[in-house]
Design a protein around this nucleic acid. Structure first.
Lengths: 335, 335
DNA sequence: AAAGCGAACGAAAACCTTTACGTAATTGTT
DNA sequence: AACAATTACGTAAAGGTTTTCGTTCGCTTT
């Protein structure tokens, strides 16, 4: 049903080759004829059939966005949606489309959309993608940009948040309130982001001369209930902490629950700082002090990086680190 | 670089037609030869080039997901992400892919991905898509499924939440607490969902013999600040309400702020019920009583409906309404 | 005026797959 | 044993676009 090059060609008694050249700003067609072609194309609403075009150019103008949901009912705070939207917005101006794929654990290594040559490149988002999946994907030879992930012994184009810096700043802020028994409750240690946040926490403690006070509990999950469990162990253990730096806001909210269950007030008996700045943090009571991640910025940078690789596949990989912002509310002890 | 039918054909000294038939479970190829074809296909990792296939079948096995973000920095609670993911999960088992497009206000009526014949169908999500966009899209002749949207004078395949029922239940619950001065603060009246929620609220009031007490304030936005503003007007006006049913959780949280600013406690001085069950609702203090929307269910149903239309484009449109669930926490007055 | 040259266009191949059609071989029927 | 019907395969066209290679035409140069 859709109009084709041939439709335009017949209307003007010219060949499809000329129509193609006229519409694609290629030389070899007179300026007046070119204009007539363009006019007719607009008139009949011509748009090139992407299947046909892709078949010959072997470029689809489509990018794959790969994500592995944290939890199966996708009820949790959808961390990557703003990133995804930012990517889409950035890409649409460059005539690229984006195709979504969620990776469940069972389907680890094969991506139909690249095998079927549906995409020109891949954006892999999330720290919970398995390392072997990431490396095999990088080895595919297809352009790849990572978000919040970083292969171990390998260079790659990746957009990271400055987790270490953010964690340092958060911990330093708790220290500035006079706390000395600050513990860290962390998410899965395999994730780069969690390792970095732990490192940042330790660095801040060390710089305050409290290196020996570093205590961490790495959990398997990142939900509020796991945060609650970790906090419970700390509070019921020896030398209970007076402040907690949580690896993410959900866990911090869980920590608050654990405190409340023991009759402790936040921030009076237990100061709290989280990470991520999810929407619940602002509305929590007390409002949660946390480290903000600039998700839109990360998405935009990932998209731009992808466009650069697409233009020149041989440029060396670069690792981009987006800085964070400590948003001070009240759970840390500030009024 | 990728393997083609011809590669397999040459290995076996047969024609590409036979290879195609063998791989697509079509008759006309002997069972032993078919098996050899399949073996080689697996061996060399053959996957059909979708561009070529689409070119001849004029089906792309791709669906477009159209969304118009509520706010430009995509920071707010991304309502449609769980829906999107549920759709993807449901579709991937049927060999369909999903292509994302965000619609900004400037770019209202043209969808490049359908003009370029990139998609076999469209899923339009959200009440904030302009009516003329929806109708022109429906007139395109391409299969369309709507989510949380419903054209005025036109039948369409659409998945809706039972907003009216949920609102009725929420209001009835406030009534059961003995409130009589219950007001409704609503979002944009153009959205079906908001109209339905208002209607449900009124019905519950009427059924309680309080039809005359119906008071509503429809706002332009849906954020907590607009909710705060609406609540402020009510509280500062004559006969201030003792309970508020808000059209969504963000506005309910804003209402709580307005109450707090006036020294009113929730739920003691002002009971609150929201809608949507965003993640912040659970962690709010007091935890927000609200109406849960089954987003994953909606996404799944939308995907299934789409598959049905794709199989038989002539089946009559169906309007599906997913029921809600009142999740009772404490902002309503329950302990 | 002849030679050379660039610009403007057409013809056709190529990309890879599906499918209608044709042909040969096999099976089944009388 | 002759013929019909079925099975198993090959041939070739079709789908719409890009791109290489020719060809023609008009123009400049000497």
């Amino acid at each position: 049903m859709a109009a084709t090059l041939l439709d335009i060609a017949k209307r003007l008694n010219i060949s499809v080759a000329t129509v193609s050249r006229a519409l694609n700003d290629r030389p070899g067609v007179g300026s007046n004829l070119r204009q007539r072609v363009i006019d007719i194309a607009n008139e009949i609403g011509f748009a090139p059939n992407m299947s046909a075009r892709s078949l010959v150019t072997s470029r689809t103008q489509t990018l794959g966005f790969v994500i592995r949901p944290f939890d199966q009912p996708f009820s949790s705070d959808p961390f990557y949606f703003p990133i995804l939207m930012a990517i889409e917005v950035e890409l649409v101006t460059h005539d690229y489309h984006i195709m979504l794929t969620s990776l469940n654990s069972e389907n680890p290594t094969n991506l139909r959309m690249v095998e079927q040559s549906r995409v020109d490149g891949l954006i892999l988002a999330g720290p919970n993608l398995s390392p072997q999946f990431v490396t095999t994907t990088l080895n595919r030879g297809i352009p790849v940009v990572l978000i919040d992930n970083k292969p171990l012994h390998r260079k790659a184009n990746t957009i990271l948040t400055d987790d270490g810096g953010g964690a340092y700043e958060a911990t330093a802020h708790l220290l500035s309130h006079g706390h000395t028994r600050i513990v860290h409750i962390g998410g899965p240690e395999e994730w780069v982001s969690n390792r970095q946040r732990y490192i940042g926490y330790c660095a801040a403690m060390r710089d305050a001369g409290l290196g020996d006070n570093c205590r961490v509990m790495h959990m398997e999950g990142t939900t509020s209930t796991t945060g609650e469990a970790a906090t419970a162990k700390f509070l019921d253990g020896p030398e209970p902490p007076t402040a907690i730096f949580a690896a993410n806001d959900s866990m911090a909210l869980g920590a608050a629950r654990a405190a409340a269950a023991r009759g402790l007030t936040v921030p009076g008996d237990l100061a709290l700082v989280g990470f991520d700045n999810i929407s619940a943090a602002e509305h929590f009571s007390p409002p949660l002090t946390t480290v903000r991640i600039f998700k839109e910025q990360m998405g935009k940078l990932a998209a731009r990086r992808m466009l650069e690789i697409l233009n020149d596949p041989d440029i060396p990989p670069v690792e981009t680190r987006v800085s964070t912002e400590l948003v001070i509310r009240q759970s840390c002890g500030c009024s």
